[in-house]
């Protein structure tokens, strides 16, 4: 069976005056129908860029320099912009971090919802409005029939993000790319939004690519996790394996550095140093200068994703 989304050797480059920067380097993964794939990593690891490449919204001069992206078997990375626009919204929905910039401040939320549905679905205006009220009701906006004619500024941050979720799901896409959907929200509201996103995507059988730096959010939401480092996937596997028994030294360091609510340590374990800049990625494994288990081969040969436990890790320890 072909997976819903299949990304193979995706490479994204930014040409600059001082040479070409490779921001994504041979990233490969797939997402099955109805599956939630969490993508984690630190700032600059390339997680948002992966999402942007999939939905065809790379900021120029960034460009896909290699690899393929297939949605339900069909190649979408080479499609002309107008064809891609039909896919975005209809088959891939998007949720971004800041609901204020996602919503158009000049249109009522009802108009934004009906317009999205009518662009992608063969339905009448009144049908679209009925469905819009239904969606607002599903995402937990009280008095949806009344609130539909309100403008984005009349909603609180949490309510706006609910509207954005309705907007992403209203054309019934097969996949939603959610980039830091709860980062701008307070924890109590974040819990509401995660629960909502989980419930709705499960009810509608929508797959989710959940991009976040928050491992806690991933732990509660994702089925599988991809850990990114310096534009590459360091490890990918089932969520419980990656969190409880990480196979890559970087993921292990990442998990250890998160302060825990369950027990208090006198010192947190830290990974010394910082992620390399794109113009200074070391040869071999990108993590080798910070890795506690480094050996000769790590400095010369770049590891590919190798089977490790129930998942895969790009680490020669598993070679």
């Amino acid at each position: 069976m072909t997976p819903l989304l299949e990304v193979t050797d995706l490479t994204v480059e930014f040409p600059t005056r001082r040479g070409t920067l490779r921001a994504l380097d041979q990233v490969s993964f797939s997402i099955g129908a109805g599956e939630v794939l969490g993508v984690v990593g630190e700032s600059g690891a390339g997680k948002s860029l992966t999402g942007a490449a999939i939905i065809g919204l790379l900021q120029p001069p960034g460009r896909i320099a290699g690899g393929t992206i297939r949605l339900e078997g069909e190649r979408i990375d080479t499609l002309p912009p107008d064809r891609l626009r039909r896919i975005r919204g209809r088959r891939i929905g998007t949720i971004f971090q800041d609901p204020l910039t996602t919503l158009n401040p000049l249109y009522t939320i009802g108009r934004q919802l009906t317009e999205t549905m009518r662009t992608h679905l063969p339905i009448s205006e009144s049908e679209a409005r009925d469905r819009a009220i239904g969606w607002l009701d599903q995402v937990g906006i009280p008095a949806a029939a009344h609130r539909i004619d309100a403008y984005p500024h009349e909603f609180s941050g949490g309510m706006r993000q609910r509207v954005v979720i309705a907007l992403a799901l209203c054309a019934e896409p097969r996949l939603v790319v959610a980039d830091e959907p709860t980062t701008a929200l307070d924890v109590s509201v974040q819990a509401q939004i995660i629960t909502l996103l989980k419930r709705l995507t499960r009810d509608h059988g929508t797959a989710v690519m959940l991009i976040t730096h928050d491992m806690g959010v991933i732990a509660e939401t994702a089925d599988r996790v991809a850990v990114m480092y310096a534009g590459r996937i360091a490890e990918i596997g089932p969520v419980s394996d990656v969190i409880r028994n990480p196979a890559h030294p970087y993921s292990r360091g990442l998990m250890d550095s998160i302060p825990s609510m369950a027990h208090r340590a006198e010192r947190l374990r830290q990974i010394d140093g910082a992620m390399p800049r794109l113009n200074a990625i070391p040869a071999g494994c990108a993590f080798n200068p910070r890795c506690p288990s480094v050996f000769d081969r790590c400095r010369s040969d770049r590891p590919v994703l190798l089977p490790a436990g129930n998942g895969q890790a790009a680490c020669w320890l598993h070679g």
Binding site: S156, G157, G158, M159, D186, V187, S188, V189, Q190, A191, Q192, I194, T195, D214, M215, G216, V217, A219, E220, T221, V239, S240, I243, R244, M255, I258, S260, M261, A262
Partner: peptide, 17 residues
């Protein structure tokens, strides 16, 4: 708080802001 010790937790969050 989403926590690493609660993999796949189903929760009933408190409403309101």
């Amino acid at each position: 708080i989403p926590d690493l010790d609660h993999i796949g937790r189903a929760r009933t969050p408190v409403g309101g802001e």
